[in-house]
Design a binder for these strands. Structure first.
Lengths: 218, 218
DNA sequence: GCCCTGATTGCACGGTGTGCAATTATTCGC
DNA sequence: GCGAATAATTGCACACCGTGCAATCAGGGC
């Protein structure tokens, strides 16, 4: 990797870190692009070469998480049942990534509409990427609607899991990673079972065969 | 309804209409707040009293659609199976609303990131409202994660249906409403059945009992 | 070393979003 | 009706945003 490439990555990272530090210390939405740039040691103009708003600089981590999950998913054996692959992809990703900052960023979105929008956009971009990957895996027989509805639902469940985790789990907890993993598993299991039976808090139904029983839900 | 209230509604509407007209004629993102204000016959400052940004003025219709759907859902009989209620709520809503502009707005989001973000935010707001309504219906036994994952998935499916519809159906088609309704029904049926079997384009599986058969999906 | 390519920077400029105080329009008590 | 309370509209000011442009600086190829 050449010097040029290396520098760009470093700069990008420096800016993202500066933005995160500022968000953390003065609160999201309470600082300007100039402040980020100054802290990152670049000019204001350069900041806007990398991101087009302060909030965007705060989604780098989430983008990374979702792209990483996509990469992991891509390496799953093709024969494996789809939901197995999806669940494992997210589970393994939670183990690879440092999660402490993610929860914090998520909570920040509660008090800052612009940041929330940026994060929603990040999920949306991931949705498109994942849909493309899945199309390659499932082939062209599958309808577009099926594909996009599935991917959207999977990400919604993941989002719900992450939010629940961010809301209830201290980010410095020992088992923080496992907590998130369990929630993702629980939410995706619900999805796989068509939400046929309401599940109370903290009691994820992971049994494969909840699937055979249900009759009329709710 | 007093004069004050009436005027506010009219102003809001005038601004939203002006924004839509402009978006339609010069393209989304190609006009300023001043232009909207001028066309609506109010001051620039007043525009910002009603909306945070030009793009926000373009989500009024979508907000209306989703709030209407929520209202319809609220009037469903409490004993009815949940997915029945949800599906019927959206179906009936598509019959009440003039849909011609919705498709156009959706397509505009493809070429305008800010508008996309505003629309995603609109879905997000609806998600919160619907989750609250559902909590009242289902009671407190239900876990938070179950609830938010369910609502997120339902809206993701609806979103996928609307997008597919917007992408494939001319907004002035005779059966435009039915087209959308069918897609929403199809997507929500897939969800109810846990996406157990891939469905090709244009062949919605609406049978309730796809549910009993499946075994390992995909 | 010299040139080429690409990243960084300063500058300028139109647009954004909001606090504030003045003005104008409705409402309400009488 | 009429004046006082209340709420909406407006103009103004101001800091900040986001981007085109041209100059400058750093890295890579030869």
């Amino acid at each position: 990797m050449g010097r040029r490439e290396r520098n760009k990555i470093d700069t990008r990272r420096a800016i993202a870190d500066a933005a995160f530090d500022l968000a953390r210390s003065v609160g999201p939405g309470a600082f300007t692009a100039d402040q980020i740039a100054e802290r990152a040691g670049v000019s204001r103009r350069t900041f806007f070469n990398y991101f087009h708003s302060a909030e965007d600089a705060l989604t780098v981590r989430m983008d990374g998480f979702l792209e990483l999950a996509l990469g992991v998913f891509g390496s799953m054996p093709a024969g494996e049942p789809l939901f197995e692959s999806i669940i494992r992809a997210f589970s393994e990703t939670t183990r690879m990534e440092g999660l402490s900052q993610h929860g914090e960023l998520f909570r920040m979105a509660d008090t800052n509409p612009e940041l929330l929008r940026a994060q929603l956009h990040s999920w949306e971009r991931a949705e498109v990427l994942i849909a493309e990957a899945l199309r390659r895996r499932l082939g062209s027989v599958t309808g577009d609607l099926y594909l996009t509805a599935l991917v959207g639902s999977v990400l919604s469940c993941t989002k719900a899991a992450v939010r629940d985790w961010a809301a209830t789990t201290a980010e410095d907890a020992e088992d923080s990673g496992e907590q998130l993993e369990a929630r993702i598993l629980a939410a995706l299991s619900m999805l796989r079972d068509g939400f046929s039976e309401p599940v109370a808090s903290g009691a994820p139904s992971t049994a494969r065969d909840t699937h055979a029983s249900p009759g009329q839900p709710v």
